[in-house]
Design a protein around this nucleic acid. Structure first.
Lengths: 340, 340
DNA sequence: GTGAAAGCGCTAACAA
DNA sequence: TTGTTAGCGCTTTCAC
């Protein structure tokens, strides 16, 4: 490995001067500068960032915590985050732990990461873990939906990117009721007790729009409560077998919605003629689905980008912020008039 | 930040001894060990890995280079890689550069990464760049399909995970011809000149099975030649408008296949009654597609896992390997008898 | 068995 | 304007 010393020797200057031209931290005379630059070139010198990190107590490295990457929703978020990280000289490391493996907290601390984006609201962090990270000087931003932002008790200094589903869900209800729907189910994939702002909004608007409601309309999932297309298929299939009559289903995400559509067809019914389906997230395949899925768009890359920007602001200026991101109802072909 | 010195002070021993109990590198008497462990506990001490890295000239950090993460194909690969990395105390950092941004090569070197997995065969690396990485002591494994493994001129010491599409493509042709197909197109998404083992196999088996062939059967893409559902839709639509008559289409990946199915329906035709479609990759949505897609399964998580294992073997034992991974034809409902 | 001390490659304060 | 030097927190060799 070529070190700064090698360059200094070759150029006949001191290591410090080499540093100064590498980092442009001080004025260096043109002659020396040229000499040094040539030496760098010839030796193919690349500064050792590990050493730099140690000296500066800063790694320009952040982490992203996701439940899964084969889920394109989180993939898109990671992609957005990586983009602004890269533009700012940062790198992002991946954490996709299985189950309740909290190893990554130590990993983040021991590697002196500058920050981490907790992209999954589903993880349960203990007060202690968060405190530990905070004390260790790692900034973190949490991704939350607005229904939960109130829960941030401010005992932590963390920024938040939040997603405001409510207006879009309201629009969805407006749209569906105009089409004559009065019995609308919610495909949650989660346990009954699970709270989620989407579920909350669903419940609210069922009431506000004066629609029919039965307990069964909230379709729950099964342990371990994932929300893939397969889960949507399974849960919807089970729901259909109960004979509960609904004309529309709001799925907690597009994956579940796509699975649900398959289950509906499997039962000899049609989307949207017999049952209308609305998804959520607008993943890149929802448009190519058949029928193209009516869904709520969430700006995923943007979310990743904003998360990284917030992280940067925490790291550099100790600034705490909350950025709410807007969602939007996208009407495609999986929704139509309610069946009589 | 609590350092090893703090622990040593508290426990009344020397820093070196603390190191030895932390890393179990030497025998330490039970009494001291207990004292030290208690001190570690009380101070919430977590070793600084940056310092360790510098001292050991090893970072236990690797990179993965992908074209995009919102593509679940690469997401799944990254997920597999992260999994075995984590199990081995490594972390994986993300590179999803846009266009011909080779910045990441310097990044990898300056951050002393132990290795990198080049998951995309599409990137063009110059001999120089690769040499540079090699000289800097970063191991790398490339993901290739077997048609290209011969191209590895062995001037680099890199391992390879390869994908053997050929037997599956042969099976696909066998299956399609048995269904009466004689005019089969290849939806490539790529320029005419682009070579790819899938294309090669396609051409081979067209010949071996004595099928019809016209230049137009190879459906090319458009700059910048991505292979998303949108591209598949666009390219297939254009192809259909030319009136070239085929009864089946082999798409270079599932995304393209899903887009193509949409285009076919858009033209008032049906899948598989009018045109059969075969995809490739078996991404997690292909089963939920409508109709469920006949495709060639590639073991994506496995690929990521194997890549990391190869990296580990290069890093630890200087071992070079090539692991060929098998693919498998999965027959679902997007293929059927050829239209008369 | 335990500890002192040199060194990993760099930054930054200070001296020259 | 340039160079010297003392760290950053850890590993590891070599005395004790």
């Amino acid at each position: 490995m070529t070190t700064r010393q090698d360059v200094a020797d070759k150029a006949g200057v001191s290591p410090a001067t080499v540093s100064h031209v590498v980092n442009s931290t001080k004025y260096v005379s043109p002659e020396l500068k040229v000499k040094i630059e040539r030496a760098i070139e010839e030796l193919n010198y690349i500064p050792n960032k590990t050493a730099r990190n140690l000296a500066m107590n800063k790694t320009e490295q952040v982490g992203i915590l996701v439940p899964s990457l084969s889920n394109p929703y989180f993939g898109a978020i990671a992609e957005g985050m990586e983009q602004v990280a890269r533009q700012n000289g940062y790198i992002v490391s991946l954490f996709a732990p299985e189950g309740s493996d909290y190893q990554y907290i130590s990993t983040i601390i021991e590697r002196q990461m500058d920050g981490v984006f907790l992209a999954n609201t589903g993880f349960q962090f203990s007060e202690n873990q968060l405190k530990h990270m905070e004390r260790s000087g790692v900034s973190f931003v949490a991704g939350l939906d607005i229904g939960f932002s109130g829960k941030n008790n401010n005992s932590f200094k963390n920024s938040i990117v939040s997603l405001d589903y409510d207006p879009s869900i309201r629009n969805m209800f407006k749209y569906l009721t105009e089409l004559g729907h009065r019995r609308i189910a919610f495909l949650s994939g989660m346990p009954v007790a699970y709270s989620d702002s989407r579920k909350q909004s669903y419940l609210d608007y069922i009431g506000k729009f004066g629609l029919d409601f039965e307990e069964e309309f909230i379709i729950t999932g099964n342990y371990p409560f994932s929300t893939s297309a397969k889960d949507g298929y399974r849960d919807m299939k089970k729901f259909l077998s109960t004979g509960t009559d609904v004309t529309a289903v709001f799925a907690i995400n597009d994956l579940m919605a796509i699975g649900a559509m398959k289950a509906i067809r499997g039962a000899g019914l049609k989307v949207p003629e017999d049952i209308s389906i609305v998804g959520c997230d607008n993943i890149f395949l929802s448009e190519a689905a058949d029928p193209p899925l009516t869904t709520i768009d969430v700006p995923k890359e943007e979310l990743g980008r904003k998360a990284m920007e917030l992280l940067l602001r925490m790291i550099n200026n100790n600034e705490i912020n909350e950025i709410p991101l807007e969602t939007e109802l996208i009407i495609r072909d999986s929704t139509s008039f309610a069946k009589k």
